[in-house]
Design a protein around this nucleic acid. Structure first.
Length: 582
DNA sequence: GTTCCCCGCGCG
DNA sequence: AAAGCGCGCGGGGAAC
């Protein structure tokens, strides 16, 4: 008699400290169970992955998967109980979230874990840590608890108002958790010599510790001379502000946008000084030594680190690598970078989710902003961009406030979707993305302040303040639905990319040691992901196939989220050896 | 001495 | 020319 093929396999801690693998069928019934030691786990999971490729149910992908990757084991599909719990417990399309919220052990916050690649030893010990022994939020790893949560989640999804959307969202979220671990394991190929050249070109040669780079010292002296303050500190905003005022420069802050319009000989060198200082402190030689090892920058990616579902990162500011430093991203010898970003992802997502035909038409097969100009709504591409961003973010002043109303008559469906989201937020309500991720409820203090300001004896100042807070929240919920749905599109995109790349054949191994690790050294793999942009590191012979995978996955993401929608998601894609600076 | 917040600026 | 959303990080300096 043959056992039914398992649909899912849950991996949890056994009472003896080893691991238990529990097979489940599609309905969630238990088919069987096996056990192994920690040392055996990678080989056991690799065999099961090859034999029947189950969806792996993990309490928290980041605690298990890095060690598997280090052992050369890649998983195709997962269900991350921690991430999915966070989505379902807050989702308005879940009919009864009470059971999930009552599961106290799973009420964890998606916080960044402090371990990162600057302390390589930390990653190697993750497996051995006891539940709760890790910094940050801990989730249950014991199979009984995991089985109970799996059943709660399955029930919440299947009884929800949108089971198919939630199935898609939870699968995409879990695929993202796998990608996040893989990105860290593979690392971003980083050319420290080029990085050093970029730094030296602007700052001058690397100074001795404690010394200021020559170029900064030079422009700093110009600023002090122009202000007549030979000892002024330029690194302290309060001191700098006082110095500027003593020189008759009347500004409220020392920020760049305020200084830029001012006619004074100190301003140009000061702006230059700020630029250089930023480069040095954020991504200078210290950063390079701390974060780049063996030709790889390995940040920690934090899926759903942002409430909208966007990723955050921890360590080295991976999502804020300045464009100026992009040329330091360089493929290994014989490899290529395949970089792609989606043109105007957020407005296209808005057009698709609102079903706005005119907006879809404006972007069909071309630059969306150019389409808005061609439609005669605004005069220039720049105005179109300001208008659209104002619509997404809730702009009310300046050019934004002037241009947004023009969109309202041309794109009524799109505009009423975001306007309605804003109105819901102002009332204290919750908004939900296309696939079912909901915004957090307002703080109790916010609610009380709104109620108090509406009472008859409220002070005028109090009313004004609460109105402003309501509008602030409205701008947040306005943007939440679009940013969050764009994040869902992007998750579907990278999940499709990783699936296609994993199907490519391996290339002959390079002779030299390969810093990407055993899973990624012989095949194209994702190396970078930033909201609407990916970089794939590919053997030269696979670069075209990787490009096709990226394009196909974008088309697939559009079909999956918005079947029958006319909205397209064009990519700007390039195959290079070195990333472009802009 | 350590912790926390603000400022300013990088990214989408 | 900035603005309206979401972030992370380094430095300064106040608070502890």
């Amino acid at each position: 008699m043959t056992a039914a093929r398992p649909d899912r396999c849950l991996v949890g801690r056994a009472p003896d400290g080893g691991w238990a693998l529990v097979d489940l069928d599609a309905a969630g019934s238990r088919l069987g169970e096996s056990a192994c030691t920690t040392a055996e786990l990678p080989a056991v999971m690799a065999r099961r992955e090859a034999e029947d490729g189950p969806r792996w149910v993990l309490s928290d992908t980041r605690t298990v998967y890095p060690r598997l990757l280090a052992a050369g084991v890649r998983l195709a599909r997962a269900h991350d109980l921690r991430l999915v719990h966070t989505i379902l417990r807050g989702s308005t399309v879940v009919t009864d979230p009470a059971a999930l919220r009552a599961a106290q052990l799973w009420e964890v916050l998606p916080v960044a874990i402090p371990e990162h690649s600057a302390t390589p030893a930390a990653g190697a010990t993750l497996f051995e840590l006891e539940p709760g022994g890790r910094a940050g939020a801990a989730v249950p790893e014991e199979t009984g608890e995991m089985l109970a949560e799996t059943a709660r989640q399955q029930r919440a999804i299947e009884t929800s108002a949108e089971p198919s959307r939630l199935r898609m969202l939870t699968a995409a979220e879990s695929a993202g958790a796998l990608v996040a671990c893989e990105l860290q394991a593979a690392g971003i190929p980083w050319d420290v010599a080029e990085h050093d050249r970029i730094l030296a070109a602007d700052l001058g040669p690397r100074p001795r510790p404690g010394q200021v780079p020559a170029a900064m010292a030079e422009v700093g002296a110009e600023v002090r001379a122009a202000l007549g303050e030979p000892l002024l500190s330029l690194d302290s905003p309060p001191r700098l502000l006082r110095g500027l005022r003593r020189a008759g420069i009347d500004v409220a802050s020392t920020s760049r946008w305020e200084l830029e319009g001012i006619e004074h000989p100190a301003i140009a060198p000061l702006l230059r000084y700020k630029k250089l200082s930023r480069l040095l402190t954020a991504n200078g030689w210290t950063w390079m030594e701390e974060w780049v090892h063996d030709g790889r920058y390995r940040p920690v990616y934090v899926p759903a680190g942002v409430v909208t579902g966007r990723w955050a990162s921890s360590g080295g500011g991976a999502l804020q690598i300045p464009r100026q430093l992009r040329p330091a991203l360089r493929a290994d010898a014989g490899w290529r970078l395949v970089g792609a970003d989606v043109s105007q992802l957020e407005p296209r997502v808005l057009a698709a989710m609102s079903g706005d035909r005119a907006m879809a038409e404006a972007g069909a097969g071309r630059d969306l902003y150019a389409g808005i100009v061609d439609a005669g709504i605004v005069a220039t591409r720049q105005e179109a961009k300001i208008a659209v961003l104002g619509a997404l973010y809730g702009g009310t002043t300046g050019d934004s406030g002037r241009l947004v109303p023009r969109l309202r008559s041309t794109f009524p469906a799109a505009m009423s979707l975001v306007d309605e989201a804003a109105a819901t937020g102002e009332r204290g309500g919750t908004v939900t993305t296309w696939l079912g991720r909901s915004s957090p409820a307002p703080e109790e203090a916010w609610r009380r302040a709104q109620a108090a300001a509406n009472s008859v004896d409220a002070a005028p100042g109090e009313q004004e303040r609460s109105r402003r807070e309501a509008r602030d929240r409205g701008r947040f919920t306005r943007n939440f639905v679009v940013q969050g749905t764009a994040a869902e599109w992007a998750l579907a995109w990278i999940a499709g990319i990783r699936r296609r790349l994993a199907a490519l054949p391996e290339v002959p191994a390079a002779e030299s040691a390969v810093p990407s690790g055993p899973v990624f050294a012989r095949r194209a793999h994702l190396a970078f992901f930033l909201h609407d942009e990916v970089i794939v590191h590919a053997p030269a012979a696979q670069a075209e196939q990787a490009a096709a995978a990226i394009r196909e996955a974008a088309a697939e993401a559009g079909r999956l989220l918005f079947p029958r929608s006319p909205v397209d998601f064009p990519l700007d894609l390039q195959i290079t050896e070195r990333a472009a600076s802009k």
